[in-house]
């Protein structure tokens, strides 16, 4: 018993001393804690539902909120006890919810979720408009914030917490006090006929190192009819958007911006290093497998590439050389690979 206590204490201590931890969901029902300093798996937590998707850490780094079971379940993961604290029951009776978009406020007591509610009547489905709810983390009580157009994939919250940003076919800015969309940044619905629609898919969420939520876009330029790609960079703190055009398309799923905001790294079958100031691709290397997401170390020197295929590959950001391969117990579920806040 004593030995066990000492062991538990040691584990807890070593856990507390870790300063650079990451979480990602894996099949069939787990969350892997990755040590970004030692480049090894620091722990695993079994979730109640299958295939954890989005992950949002609490500001104190003690909890992670995640969606499981086909984005229908909202679980509270306790990183200290390495277990599920509870499931936030937010689905009203007679409904089915699918959750795309999850963000926590600065205090960590209020979650915003983008839900797609479906009323399951006895002989038919009735789809309610997609909407954003705020969830009281302590009680699980929900309140509708605003309805949004179909197609929202991710949520962000400005630093002053007055605006939610919903990333869908366009970027929608929702005033939390006014309960409505007050502004839209056009992506697919360009107002000018000489601007090509920016096709983005914001399912890959890891912006905490830089505060820049960066998603690759593809477009066909209406003047030249040429296909182009680039990055839509959203500064989460103030909601400002920077569209960085990069040239001919290379298939990419996602991008991550370095902590100094000078570089971005994008992945699919290749890893691209992008100089954001010069707006150019500086290096390209073939990846070991197709990958969905990458996160970046706090010092910006290491890239942790994962999602799709049961590995984390550690790359050197300066050389794009593979440093280490870490096997995962299961396939990473799309979409989050999040850095935990420093403790």
């Amino acid at each position: 018993m004593k030995a066990l206590l000492i062991f538990a204490f040691t584990v807890a201590l070593s856990f507390a001393q870790e300063s650079e931890l990451y979480v990602l969901g894996v099949h069939p029902h787990g969350i892997v804690i990755f040590d970004g300093t030692r480049h090894e798996i620091a722990g695993q937590i079994q979730t109640r539902g299958r295939a954890p998707k989005e992950l949002v850490p609490s500001p104190d780094g003690k909890f992670v909120y995640t969606t499981t079971d086909g984005r229908a379940k909202l679980e509270v993961v306790n990183l200290e006890t390495r277990s599920i604290d509870r499931v936030l029951e937010i689905t009203p009776p007679g409904y089915r919810l699918t959750i795309y978009g999850l963000v926590l406020n600065g205090k960590g007591d209020r979650l915003y979720v983008h839900v797609k509610p479906v009323r399951e009547l006895i002989d038919r489905y009735v789809v309610d408009p997609p909407q954003i709810w705020s969830v009281d983390v302590a009680t699980g009580k929900t309140q509708k914030v605003a309805e949004v157009p179909q197609g929202v994939a991710a949520l962000a919250l400005t630093k002053d917490e007055r605006k939610l940003i919903a990333w869908g076919r366009d970027l929608y800015y929702i005033d939390v006090a006014q309960n409505r969309i007050t502004d839209t940044f056009p992506l697919m619905n360009q107002p000018s006929p000489t601007a090509g629609a920016l096709n983005t898919l914001a399912l890959f969420i890891q912006f905490e190192r830089s505060g820049i939520f960066s998603i690759p876009y593809y477009t066909r330029d209406p003047i030249t009819a040429k296909d182009l790609m680039g990055l839509v960079n959203l500064d989460v703190a103030n909601g400002k958007v920077d569209v960085v055009e990069l040239g001919s398309p290379i298939p990419l799923y996602s991008a991550v911006v370095s902590p100094d905001r000078k570089h971005a790294y994008a992945v699919m079958n290749q890893l691209l290093a992008i100089d954001l100031e010069k707006k150019r691709i500086t290096q390209i290397t073939d990846l070991e497998r197709t990958r969905y997401v990458a996160n970046i170390s706090r010092d910006g020197k290491r890239l942790f590439v994962s999602g799709a295929a049961p590995f984390i590959h550690v790359y050197d950001t300066a050389t794009l050389q593979l440093i280490k391969t870490i096997e995962l117990p299961g396939d990473p579920s799309v979409t989050s690979f999040r850095a935990l806040p420093a403790r």
Partner: peptide, 17 residues
């Protein structure tokens, strides 16, 4: 050549969502 490689890497991404 532009598909996910191998397809097994992408299979659960497609299955999940």
């Amino acid at each position: 050549s532009g598909l996910c490689q191998p397809v097994e890497a992408d299979l659960y991404g497609c299955y999940d969502d």
